[in-house]
Design a protein around this nucleic acid. Structure first.
Lengths: 211, 211
DNA sequence: CGCCTTCCGGTACGCCGAGTACCTTGCCGG
DNA sequence: CCGGCAAGGTACTCGGCGTACCGGAAGGCG
């Protein structure tokens, strides 16, 4: 009835199915989210933009949040650990990268998603750079090189220790809600916490020797 | 019309005003939140339970979230820094306390509120134990005693350093979404990160001496 | 080559909850 | 005694998620 006059989608004339439709929906979701953030990502708008209807979406993603997370994953790329030649440089570089990301529109979206997930693990683990292991790897790489150079002690090669810096930075965003972390904060994290931590830890096995 | 048969609030027969009404609303909000969490805190239910109507609420709190935060603040009490006599004991004690809180129903509410706030500073700063300064004070106290005892180096008396442990713990909840942190995690945080950090930091001023 | 299953397109709707508008009614101060 | 302020009451708008239902295109299967 509305075959050729109603809406000229420009896409295939033939009715889309399966993967092709899924792709269209996801692209629509991505675009919507870039324009209006996750808050502005409504199922109706996505459906309209994809030239389909909510049914087709719900057949693939169980909820708005799931779609949002899927769309976000399209937008991020894994970070490469830098190699400036010294630990402080590497760490600062990574922190600055993270800070840029969190301060960017993408970071805003990420924060919205984390908010919406509200601690639901099944969603949190889908978010890159939140899913622990992946993020920890880059830090361990950087730290590994530093240990080889003698800049850090081998005991620091521990996920919990290696990622302390980003955790602190993330804390600024998530808990304090800053829009962007000033560079002094990054430097402070590195010089007051991270470097002393991975260097120092010399003498005591940290178990019982107190004095 | 419904003067004496409809709903027996038990409170004053006379129409409540000002502080008395405000109090009733807040109590209702607290009760609701204890029963169903922030998610279950609807303005209609609060109004009904307080024996009033949404108007009276909106005259006092601009939004549901503001009411939720106000109600939450009723529920929490400031923590006293422990004094076990040694740093490790104090720190573990505080971490365990924090862990208990985050794992408790109140902690669940707190997480919901943080979620709902979505990084809005005006709300985050209203949440006790999130508002930085307050929380930092207890840690500085504990650390101060440790410094006096010679268990920690004076450079550690820095808010960013002193609070590292809670930040790491909070990270478990907020980012990883765990319902409760196992005790080994707390011990690991203390022994692998916190104690080495506040003890060690010996030699280098961490500024330029790289090699 | 025609049927039949699948699943897309379209539309309409249910439901819930936040926030608003507007009037009525009672309390209190002058 | 009167006027105004705030509480009570009710109804409503608006947005948005998730569902239901139906007809019809695509494509597989015999």
């Amino acid at each position: 009835m509305v075959n050729d006059s109603g809406k000229p989608p420009g896409a295939g004339r033939t009715r889309r199915r399966g993967a092709s439709l899924e792709e269209a929906i996801l692209r629509a979701a991505v675009d919507e989210m870039l324009e209006s953030g996750y808050a502005g990502l409504t199922m109706d708008k996505v459906a309209a933009r994809a030239g389909t209807n909510k049914n087709a979406i719900y057949r693939r993603w169980p909820s708005r949040l799931a779609l949002g997370v899927a769309a976000y994953r399209r937008l991020v790329t894994a970070v490469q650990p830098p190699d400036t030649g010294d630990l402080r440089g590497d760490v600062l570089e990574m922190l600055r990268g993270a800070n840029r990301h969190w301060s960017s529109p993408l970071g805003a979206i990420l924060r919205e998603l984390m908010s919406a997930a509200g601690g639901a693990r099944e969603f949190l683990t889908q978010l890159p750079e939140q899913s622990g292991d992946a993020a920890a790897a880059a830090w361990l790489t950087v730290l590994g090189r530093a240990v080889a150079r003698g800049e850090a002690s081998p005991e620091a090669l521990h996920p919990r220790v290696a990622t302390v810096a980003v955790v602190l930075l993330r804390n600024e965003f998530v808990v304090r809600g800053v829009p962007t972390a000033p560079d002094d904060v990054l430097v402070e994290i590195v010089d007051e916490v991270y470097l002393p931590l991975v260097r120092g830890r010399g003498s005591a096995p940290a178990q019982d020797v107190v004095k």
